[in-house]
Amino acid sequence: MPESEAATPTPAQPAPARPPGRLPTRIELFLGFATIAACGFGGVLAWARRVIVQQRAWLSAEEFNEQLALCQVLPGGNIVNFSIMFGYRAGGALGSLAALLGLIGPPTLLMMVAGMLYARFGALPELRGVFAGLAAAAAGLLVATVAQMFATTVKRRLRPAHAMMAVTFVCAGILRLPLLWVVALLMPISIALAWWERR
């Protein structure tokens, strides 16, 4: 339905803060987010920026950062939230759906095939070592990601924030408390601390 950005003044449509380029149609949304998913090995954010800002100029770099920051505040996958919010802005509810399906549809199919292969061949003695090696490398990758995130916080000396990190780690990683309780309890404290530090 290409009338998405035509002058149909439905009340659901927000007044968008003028996009730098032309906003995509729903088919373009689907294909764009499918491209982001297909190229995004080990994290799709870099590819989201490349496709949306550089290749197709759907958003300026500032708008991209602003929208992404908002998505990081919301629960759930950042890029998933981004697809919903950007899709809505470009094409309403169906735009959200098109972007979301483009982003998670093909990878979901791929993962189902991978799951079937793993169930069928994962226990083969010849492949045990492959999966053990992959798992060890994936663990190292995750540790490095956390270390990089941690390193960026150390430059600005944020003492209470580091205490929050330690408490969260112990609750979730060592004590294995239900995460719903951990987040419900620690998030408000952490936000209050952030507010207090910024007064």
């Binding site: 929050m164 969260t168 060592i174 952490s190």
Partner: peptide, 29 residues
């Protein structure tokens, strides 16, 4: 938003560290 975001960072890092710990403990035998 910036306040909420600043508050989210430590919890996110703590949870990601817990994820890394759990996955590494399972993988490194």
């Amino acid at each position: 938003r910036t306040v909420i975001q600043a508050g989210l960072v430590p919890v996110t890092i703590g949870l990601m560290a817990a994820s890394a710990f759990i996955v590494a403990r399972a993988a490194d035998r």
